[in-house]
Write a protein that binds this DNA or RNA. Sequence first.
DNA 1: CGTTGAAACTAGTCACTGACAAGTCGGTGG
DNA 2: CCACCGACTTGTCAGTGACTAGTTTCAACG
Lengths: 188, 188
Amino acid sequence: MARRYHHGDLRQAVLTAAVEVLGDSGPAAVNLRDLARRVGVSHAAPAHHFGDRSGLLTAVAAQGFDLLADTLEELPPSSDLLDAGVAYVSFAVEHRAHFEVMFRPELLRADDPDLRAAQERSNQALDWAIAGFRDGSVDPVVAGAAAWSLVHGFATLWLQRALPAAVGDDVEAAARAVAELLVRGANP
Amino acid sequence: MARRYHHGDLRQAVLTAAVEVLGDSGPAAVNLRDLARRVGVSHAAPAHHFGDRSGLLTAVAAQGFDLLADTLEELPPSSDLLDAGVAYVSFAVEHRAHFEVMFRPELLRADDPDLRAAQERSNQALDWAIAGFRDGSVDPVVAGAAAWSLVHGFATLWLQRALPAAVGDDVEAAARAVAELLVRGANP
DNA sequence: CGTTGAAACTAGTCACTGACAAGTCGGTGG
DNA sequence: CCACCGACTTGTCAGTGACTAGTTTCAACG
C-alpha cells in the first residue's frame, strides 16, 4: 500500500500498534513517535486523533473495558460466579495489553466519556455476575468487593509471575481453584 | 545548610525525595533531574548512587519489601490470618508510595541483590502468616495464593478508588470484612 | 603533616520524547 | 467548480535519561 496523504484509518492503526507494543513491552514503552513510525505517518499525526499520550492510552483502556464487558456478557446463561471469576482472569491473560492499562488511573483521562461508558458497561456486567454470590447471609457489597478483589489480585499477580511456581501453569484451573475457596470457605 | 560539594547523605536524601514524589504523583512523575534539584545537587549526581532510573526505583522497592517484612514480623503472636491480611492492606495504604513501585516489575531491576533479599524476607513473612490458613482440608498452595490474591487485589483496587463507595472509608474494617469472607466462606 | 588514590559530585553533551504552532493536502458538500 | 474543514506534515522547543570527562573532597597511608 503506497503511502498516501490520508491514511484512511489512522486511528485504528495506531490503536492496534499501541496494543502490540503494550503486549510486548508494557505501557512505559508506548510513545507516540514510535507508533507514528510503525504506521508510516509523521510524528505528530497520532496527536490529531488522540490529543496526547494519555488520550491514546485512554482509548486503549476504553476498548479494554468494552472487551471485558463483551467477555462477561457472552458467558452462557448456565454460568455461575466461579465461571465469571475464571472469565475475568482469562480476560486479563488473553488481553494482557489492555488489562495493564485499564487499571492505571494515572495514565488515563478519567473523565473521558468513552472510557466512562465502557467502565459502566463492564461494571454492570460484573455486578450481574456477582449477583449469584448474594445468598442473603452475607453483605452483598462485601461479597462483591471480595469476589472482585480475589480475581483482580490473582490476575495481577499471575501476570507479574509473582505467584509461586507450585500453582501450576494452567491459569484457568488455578483461578478456579482459588475462586472455589472463596465460595466454599477455607474452614467450612 | 550551605551547599557543600559532598552532600553527605545523598543516597538517602534522593530516596526520601523519591518517596515523596511517588506519594504525590506516582511513579511516572519520578525523574532523576527533578530529584536532583529538590536535593540541591547537579542533575547527574543521583546516577552515581543508583545508576539509572530503574536503579532508583529498585532501591525504593527494596526498602518497601523490607518495610512490609517488618510490618508482618511485628504482628503480635496472638495474630491470626485475618490480622495478617489486614496488616498487608494497611501497609499498602500507609506506604502507598512504596507499594505502587513494589509490584511493577517493568520498572525494576529484578536481579538486584538488595531487592531479591528484601523480597525473600517479605515472602517468608507472608508464608508464615498464611500458615495459619492450612487446616489440612485445603491445598496450602491454593490457600496461600487465594489469601494473597484477595488482600493484594483489595489493596490495589482500594488505592485506585475503584471499589464502590458502599464499602465505606475505613480501610481496615473493610479489609477485615472481605478477608473474613474468604476464611468463613460465602456459602457456609 | 603531606601525598595520593578513590569516591562523590559537577559540567557538558547527545539522542529522544511530548507538546505545540503553522502550514499543506484532499475529500466532500454546496 | 470551489470553499471549507478535517487529516496530515513540517518545524520547533523544553524536558529527560544516559553518557563522558573533569573537578573537588575525603581518608588512608607513609
